[in-house]
Amino acid sequence: MGVVTPARPAAKARPARAATRVRHRDGWWAALFLAPQVIGLLAFLVFPLGFAVVLAFMKWDGLGEKSWAGFDNFAAQLSDPDFGTAVWNTVKLAFLTVPVGLALALLIALALNQVKGKTFYRVVYFLPVVTSSVAVAVMWQIILASGDYGVLNRTVYDWFGIALPNWLEDPGWVIVSIAVVTIWSSLGLNVVIFLAGLQTIPPALMEAARIDGAGPIRVFRSVTLPMISPTVFFSTVVAVISSFQAFDQIYVLVNPDHNDGARTIVYQIYDLGFQNFEFGMSSAAALILLVLTLLVTLVQFGVQKRFVHYDS
């Protein structure tokens, strides 16, 4: 360019070096502050994920030698009827829990948004979320158990003489029972998120709509829903991923080992790895789940462009 950089006076060089030293020192401090997060991420996410990917192509019982299996584990899982059952049950669970759970949470949030003492209700609805999932499962086990053992069945039979189904053991009902428990235990989280979303809507916008003659349904459809659509989208993504990862409550609530109706993908992963000691197969199933989750999430992100409004 023909521009000649003028030679710096010697006196100016020292502050420049000092600035570099400060930048280096700040870099070290930054690294130190970041260390806990980075180490945690590497130890508990990157390394296990990498190890699982490697294991998916190996045959390993957890103690002995690992041997190369290529794509055998994937092929075995994709042709295993148990895996098919697990995928189907997981999809059913997602279809039951996500729309019903989110719609219910939105309804409750809309109601709470109108009342005084929101904090109290928020705490009440949030209690199941902070309760141990095992405790929740045991409580629902007591409610839903069959015959004389179950609070629900016994009460209904004693009062009305109606024999209700065997909620936790009948293959046709078990996934519905799991869905009810899942919705109940996650409702509070979605209510709180929706409530937060509702409170970000400028009151002037609602008021303007009402002045223009919009009724409550029109206000909800044309103002509230578009305004909280990013929140709905976020909750949907999280709910779908959570339903794909359902395990702990199901493990305690029913015994999927003896009830194919409750076998989900994560139970299949656990069963293969920690009951059958087929860690390669288990990792392959986990990777298939990862791909499924990614695909569904990508579809959600694709669809959201048409329904989610990010402008305020």
């Binding site: 401090w29 502050f33 806990p36 180490i39 945690g40 130890a43 508990f44």
Partner: peptide, 20 residues
Amino acid sequence: SKKALAAAALALTATVTAAC
């Protein structure tokens, strides 16, 4: 001070690592 914070961060890392 930054030193104290960094020490705390490292101690936390060590604790978490040991706990796990």
